[in-house]
Design a protein around this nucleic acid. Structure first.
Length: 430
RNA sequence: UCCUCGGUAGCUCAAUCGGCAGAGCGGGUGGCUGUUAACCACUAGGUUGGGGGUUCAAGUCCCUCCCGGGGAGCCA
């Protein structure tokens, strides 16, 4: 018999095949048992009949959930079966009889599921999310490839830091003392644009913030892009094009998975250029009219973001924040020095910030001043300052959070389900 | 770090005013000729997160510690 995968069933209708996988669930009647069978490419129903299987039927009838089996039998179209096909077994080899599987058919709480993440990852919902993640990351890479960006893998161990050290994980580094796990590749990307023009990186990012919310992980994946000779407006135009590309391609490719996740993709279909653009000051006006007492100079909180995203039917940029609320490397507005050229992109439907980006300060003296104003030490930024000494150019870039974007695309309540093994404030196992 | 909610059977939860610790799922045994979180019958399963206290009596009230969930701040 020919071995095939469940995803290939349309080509094997009426034929005898061998499939290898696991029993997701089982139902039995007097003379017939139904195994819900999974092989990594799909699910189907295996029909096991007493009269066909003989002695092994007694074992199959009570086989523990998650046992691994190899099934030989005929592929048949069957509307009543999950996946649309069933295999009428002529024989079944038991590879391993599972111990009692901790995750049952009824609902479970988050603590239990997260403690059993290594087993939870087998479930239909979780495998669907992982496939959407795979597609999203692939389309991210495709976009940059198609637009002549070069991948630059930035270091994980770093000495200089994007911002202050209080939210960095420190690591002992031989005789050199402390290094820190990277929380951004941006500064290194800035070095790379001088040779390559447009570059990007995609990798894990570490934040030692004691954050405990549905939008935070201590280890998450971020894609960052940096472009030479790009100003603020060009940066936003690119982000708009990029986000539209990855969303449209991902939802088109993974329709079945999104359906399983019960994600209504109509709102996602509207994610095409142009996005809404409002200034920080306009955002404050909106919030004040909604009854907020937020003061100028304060960063927008989670609730503020939610209020604003609910007013728009597609992603919205909030541009030009006060300089005091943002990082030192952002370029200050030439006419209004109290502002910087930056923007956060908020995803609709209450998801909030998925991108932070800015045009970078390319003037040596202004950058030195900004470093000092932020109580940072210019000496530790030697190489970064050099970039403003040898052919400095206007440049801009942004970073997009993979898990937040995936959470939005999948319509999930919490980012913890979007990464295979989430690291959170109180959780580093499994 | 702060606010808030919670911890009872392997899992999800219930237990009235402080008064015999229960159900569903899962496990075991048996039944059922096509099931859809299958169903039916029977059955086993408990140091009520740990420690201390009040009381005739504590899952329930008080103190304390531990472990989680949600949120704030911060950020993607």
């Amino acid at each position: 018999m020919k071995e095939c995968s469940i995803s290939q069933f349309p080509e094997y209708i009426g034929q005898d095949v061998t499939i290898k996988g696991w029993v997701s669930n089982r139902r039995s009647s007097g003379r017939v048992s139904f195994l819900i069978f999974r092989d990594g490419t799909g699910i189907c129903q295996v029909v096991a009949e007493r009269d066909v299987l003989g002695d092994t039927y007694q074992e199959i009838r009570k086989i523990p959930i998650e046992s691994s089996v190899i099934v030989h039998g005929k592929v048949v179209e069957e509307g009543r079966s999950a996946g649309g096909f069933e295999v009428q077994a002529s024989s079944i080899d038991i590879v391993h009889l599972s111990d009692e599987f901790p995750i049952g058919k009824k609902e479970h709480g988050p603590d239990f599921l997260l403690s059993n993440r290594h087993l939870w990852l087998r479930s239909a919902r979780q495998t669907a999310i992982m496939r959407v993640r795979d597609a999203l990351v692939r389309h991210v890479r495709n976009y940059f490839y198609e637009n002549t960006f070069t991948l630059i893998d930035t270091p994980i161990f770093t000495t200089t830091c994007g911002e202050d050290t209080s939210n960095l994980f420190s690591v002992d580094y031989f005789d050199l003392g402390k290094t820190y796990l990277s929380q951004t590749g941006q500064l290194y990307l800035e070095a790379a644009i001088f040779g390559l023009g447009k570059v990007y990186c995609l990798g894990p990012t570490f934040r030692a913030e004691r954050s405990k919310t549905r939008r935070h992980l201590t280890e998450f994946w971020m894609v960052e892009a940096e472009m030479a000779y790009y100003d603020h407006k060009m940066n936003l135009d690119l982000q708009e094009d990029f986000v539209s590309y990855i969303v449209q391609n991902t939802i088109a490719e993974r329709q079945e998975d999104l359906k399983l996740l019960e994600r209504d993709i109509e709102p996602l279909k509207r994610v095409v250029p142009p996005f809404h653009r409002i200034s920080y000051d306009e955002a404050l006006d909106i919030l004040h009219k909604q009854g907020s007492d937020i003061v100028w100079g304060a960063d927008l909180g989670g609730d503020d973001e939610t209020v604003i995203t609910q007013l728009f039917d597609k992603p919205v940029f909030i541009e030009n924040y006060p300089k005091q609320t943002k990082a030192f490397y952002m370029k200050q507005h030439p006419d209004r020095p109290e502002y910087v050229f930056c923007a956060d992109l908020l995803a609709p439907e209450g998801y909030g910030e998925i991108i932070g980006g800015s045009q970078r300060e390319d003037n040596y003296d202004l950058l030195i001043k900004a470093i000092k104003d932020n109580n940072l030490e210019p000496e530790t930024y030697g190489w970064y300052l050099d970039l403003r000494r040898y052919g400095s150019v206007p440049h801009a870039g942004f970073g997009l959070g993979i898990e937040r974007t995936l959470s939005w695309i999948c319509g999930l309540k919490h980012v913890r389900e979007t990464i295979p093994f989430p690291r959170m404030l109180y959780r580093a196992y499994p």
